[in-house]
Design a protein around this nucleic acid. Structure first.
Lengths: 210, 210
DNA sequence: GTCTATATTAGGATAGAC
DNA sequence: GTCTATCCTAATATAGAC
């Protein structure tokens, strides 16, 4: 693998594990056994590294976001959609752990992040709206918009919350808990059988663990 | 006002406005027109300042949290409760803007913050449970617990979300939007009339603006 | 209590040899 | 492309005079 690519990978790992602000250019060079000078030959500093990582994240998440729009969704597809969305976020979770300080330090990120969140909200809203129109969910269009916004907050901040209150969970457990809580948010709009619905999602999770 | 107290006030303002990591001890000394040496006479650095600010926040928020438990609640009292809770959080919002990096840098904070969030969840859960028991909300005890957790995530991260997606809102507008969205989360468990319920909260807000 | 002056350190960044 | 050496800067922290 080329040095440039190795720097990106190592940075992502370190940022996720230690938090971006706790990782210096020297730290990155250290784990790669290259000199700081070498690192600076490839990237002028942390900022361009982060910018490139974000571009990569943006591309991947946009793949995820545009997938469900294509087809009318079966219910289980939605669960899968949220699992994949959370997994993607976990892969680049350092962006979410400290959104505010990152966007303060790298103003370009603020614009990109805002745009990303808007896309997420938009996608979630159209999924919910589809489910509403086919009668699977019983709600007004206004409620649908509010719900989409709450779901957006949820997918954006759940990983941070989880890490704060239960730092010992594995990623898989944290993601499942996130999806479960998210679905719990949608369940009350089912015309009936919301308990059964929540049980189904747990069953689904158990199956994926085998 | 004593210098020690002035340092605390100025630090809180600066932290809220600029973000904790963007404020140095020299910055704090500057706005107060005192020397960095003088600041270090009163506090050994930013850490003890932050620790003392958090203690203060903890005391105040605990006042807020234990209030609603005392009495059976009228519905409007709950709105007021959430307004006050959000206001308190906004007063010390720098803690919430970057929970993760703060708790990484000051590990003591992590423990305290976790405890605080547990109290919040506990209080919200008992409010909801009361409303459930009197039949105002229709849900199982399990749903009640899930809802309390979602509400906790919401009050914890809403300010950050709001600041990210709509940085131009005034504090008052942001808080109202936060309460509105929060109530929207509870509304679906009303046996009936959830639209009217949401309209009520807006009306309530308009009244407070006069 | 408060100041000035200074020490220390860590991180970001570059020049020039290989 | 990579290294070594070095510089610059900002932030933390302390010593000692007033």
């Amino acid at each position: 693998m080329k040095t440039r690519e190795r720097i990106l990978r190592a940075s992502l790992t370190l940022f996720n594990e230690e938090g971006e602000s706790n990782v210096s250019t020297v730290d990155i060079a250290d784990v790669l056994d290259i000199s700081p000078g070498n690192l600076y030959y490839h990237f002028k500093g942390k900022e361009p590294i982060i910018a490139e990582l974000f571009d990569q994240f943006e591309r991947e998440i946009n793949q995820v976001l545009k997938a469900p729009i294509k087809k009318a969704l079966a219910i289980e597809d939605n669960w899968v959609f949220f699992y994949i969305l959370f997994e993607e976020i976990y892969d680049f979770r350092f962006f979410y752990r400290n959104i505010t300080s990152l966007t303060e330090q790298y103003p370009k990120l603020a614009t990109q992040f805002r745009k990303l969140i808007r896309s997420k909200r938009q996608t979630i809203a159209s999924i919910l709206d589809t489910l509403r129109k086919v009668g699977f969910l019983e709600m007004t269009p206004e409620e649908c918009i509010l719900l989409a916004e709450r779901c957006t907050v949820h997918v954006t901040y759940w990983p941070s919350y989880q890490e704060l209150v239960s730092p010992k969970l594995t990623t898989g457990e944290a993601i499942h808990a996130g999806v479960h809580t998210l679905i719990g948010q949608i369940a009350p709009y089912l015309p009936e059988g919301r308990q059964e619905f929540l049980a189904l999602i747990d069953e689904f999770y158990s199956n994926t663990q085998e």
